[in-house]
Amino acid sequence: MSIPAVPTRGAARPAPYIVSGILIVTGIVLPLLIPIYARLAPTLFGMPFFYWYQMLWVLIDSVLLWICYILVTREDRRRRDSTRSDPASPAHARFGKTEGDA
């Protein structure tokens, strides 16, 4: 019944998503592997390892997600452009200007 969807994006290339997926899983698993960090030494400014390790992951996760952001948005832009440059696409006519156009 439903009318055919107007594609918003072209086909995906897997690489950026696989790399991002690995980074995301890393960013979830390593801060939760408590057996590897539930200890006192080495201390940093008198703070046990347990505490500074977990707070360090705040910064590491930020960096990981920043990399993911660049990978995913770049691929996203390519997929959008590929839809628009296809003149057969009904979406083509609808876009005036888009952020992605550089």
């Binding site: 980074l23 995301i24 899983v25 960013g27 979830i28 801060p31 939760l32 347990f50 505490y51 977990q54 707070m55 992951w57 705040v58 996760d61 930020s62 990981l64 997600l65 993911c68 952001y69």
Partner: peptide, 21 residues
């Protein structure tokens, strides 16, 4: 101590990969 309090840190760390996804 840590068990009932500091888990808030890993909680709000692993939160963001989930949000991103």
């Amino acid at each position: 101590g840590a068990l009932s309090g500091f888990f808030a840190v890993p909680y709000t760390v692993v939160l963001y990969p989930i949000v991103f996804l």
